[in-house]
Design a protein around this nucleic acid. Structure first.
Length: 508
RNA sequence: GGCGGUGUAGCUCAGUUGGUUAGAGCAUCCGGCUCAUACCCGGAGUGCCGGGGUUCGAAUCCCUGCACCGCCA
């Protein structure tokens, strides 16, 4: 049985969840649900990154112990994922003992293999912020970019990971697997970055207490990114569950924001190569959301709260908008106007209304029951579905969610056009056309059933409602839905319920 | 400054290896329908950043100019 391992980054808990977190996690959820729908073994993980100086400082300011602070913020993430219908299998926290053990194990492994050495880290340091700043971020002015106070040149003992030794192996790997980093523009960036030569990476901090101790040298804690990246191994069962690890690790897919691509596409592969482990199948960097054309920031006060969007518009409208509005990988803009227009046009007018008018006619002309009539097959429908399915699958393979959805909507448009052309309301008045009326209505119900399957990964709640409306929700217990994605795979007799609009139009 | 990318309809974008009259959605205008959530269907449009080149043929390849974006320094 095929396996699929999909991860979100673990989110840093110095921030409460916003639309960016929701975006990545939603996309990961769609992939997880899609691969489950195809009958694969799926492992879907998300979680929180809880160590580091910033957390310790925030806790101190709040008068809490670091662990108390992170415990509080974690609840907000878990709560949002529940409300967004995120079907994660594992919620990992970097403070989990299991994870801390894995990180130390990896540290020891790389040390044993000779890829970790002790050296000194020299840079510009802000004493109040307790942060090192690389010269490239200082623009020639030696003041702290955070607080504006003067920096001091400081030298600190540190453990280093010999990343430079993996420049050539990583370059070869990128050449061999051009799909390793997606989209292509990001691949090019990473490739040229690696080509420029990699530097060894400091992977410990001497002054930071809130972190995982370096094995055998408790004055040092492990650098947050080394700590964080290894979460993907912890989840997969590294050093703990060999069977699970062998199944899922080679099938790992990482979804990341473009800001953290380099850690995932350079440092992380370096660590894995050093450890002698396979690299993930894919690292996909998606874009950012602006709000009403402006960058989202706390100081502007324009941060979109996903809970608020869900409360006002419903979870499936939100999920649909996130994945349909912009093509995955590009930046997008979130605005109420765009949200309402997208939702009304696609979900209410085209999709919801097609279902509604179909079911209404089945109720009106056939008391809600239609048996599969002979000769209901239709070549045009069949050809369209086969093409849509093929292109849908190809799009999903490339994480091209927006394209996948627009493929599905070709069926929706065809359904509406078909209804207009056939005009069943006229057939109903002509006793000689009763058989044809059955054929038309059955095709449309079957189309609704197939739409329900297609949208299941994207809008699970709506899919469930739709399939229940058509009386075919039993299909949801099937392990592999792919074989039901064809004509006539529905029941011998459709028995529909009284319809409520799936997506009432929103007032702008 | 180096490398990479983008520039297509009013707006957001798609255009596979160069091959008929360049597409989609939204917006606009006109017509139709009445099963439906004032929805849906049909039609009308307008367009390949500027300049030069290769070719029987260029949105697609090459050169150049301009504008914008990303990564790096």
């Amino acid at each position: 049985m095929r396996a699929f391992y999909i991860t979100t980054p673990i989110y840093y808990v110095n921030d409460v969840p916003h639309i960016g977190h929701a975006y990545t996690t939603c996309a990961a959820d769609v992939l997880a649900r899609f691969h489950r729908m195809m009958g694969e073994r799926v492992l879907f993980s998300t979680g929180t990154d809880e160590h580091g100086q910033k957390i310790a400082k925030a806790a101190q300011e709040a008068g809490l112990a670091p662990q108390e602070l992170v415990d509080q913020v974690v609840v907000r993430f878990r709560d949002l994922w529940e409300k967004m219908h995120i079907s994660y299998d594992v919620f990992i926290r970097t403070t989990d003992p299991e994870h801390e053990r894995t990180v130390q194990e990896m540290f020891l492994l790389l040390q044993k293999k000779g890829y970790i050495y002790k050296g000194a880290y020299e840079g510009w340091y802000c004493i109040p912020c307790e942060t090192f700043w690389p010269e490239s971020q200082l623009e020639g002015r030696f003041v702290c970019p955070d607080c504006g106070r003067p920096l001091e040149r400081l030298r600190e003992e540190s453990y280093f990971f010999a990343l430079s030794r993996f420049t050539q192996p990583l370059l070869s790997y990128l050449e061999k697997y051009p799909d390793f980093v997606m989209p292509e523009s990001r691949f090019n960036e990473i490739y040229s970055f690696v080509k420029g030569g990699l530097k060894d990476q400091s992977i410990s901090r001497a002054g930071v207490r809130w972190g995982i101790p370096v094995p055998g040298d408790p004055n040092h804690t492990i650098y947050v990114w080394f700590d964080a990246l290894i979460n993907y191994l912890t989840v997969a069962g590294f050093g703990r569950d060999e069977e699970q690890f062998a199944l899922f690790w080679p099938e790992a897919h990482h979804l990341v924001g473009k800001d953290i691509l380099r850690f995932h596409a350079v440092l992380w592969p370096g660590i894995l190569l050093a450890a002698g482990l396979p690299l993930p199948r894919r690292v996909f960097a998606h874009g950012w959301w602006t709000v009403n054309g402006e960058k989202m920031s706390k100081s502007r006060g324009n941060v979109v709260d996903p809970l608020e969007v869900i409360r006002r518009f419903g979870v499936d409208r939100f999920r649909y908008f996130l994945l349909r509005e912009v093509s995955f990988g590009l930046d997008g803009d979130f605005s109420e106007k765009a949200f309402i227009e997208r939702s009304n046009a696609d979900l209410s007018d085209n999709f919801g209304n097609l279902i509604h008018r179909t079911v209404s006619m089945v109720l009106r002309y056939r008391n809600g029951r239609i048996s599969r009539p002979s000769g209901y097959e239709d070549r045009e429908w069949e050809e369209l579905l086969h093409e849509v399915r093929e292109r849908f699958l190809a799009s999903m393979e490339r994480f091209a969610f927006s394209q996948a959805l627009s493929e599905v909507w070709r069926l929706v448009h065809f359904g509406n056009r078909y209804l207009d052309q056939k005009a069943p309301w006229r057939m109903a008045k002509d006793t000689s056309l009763q058989r044809e009326l059955d054929q038309v209505l059955y095709r449309l119900l079957d189309c609704g059933r197939i739409l329900g399957i297609f949208i299941l990964p994207f809008m699970p709640e709506t899919a469930r409602k739709l399939l229940a409306l058509l009386g075919v929700e039993a299909i949801l217990t099937e392990g592999n839905l792919m074989s039901f994605l064809d004509w006539g795979k529905g029941p011998e007799t459709f028995s529909v319920q009284q319809p409520e609009p799936l997506f009432p139009r929103l007032e702008g």
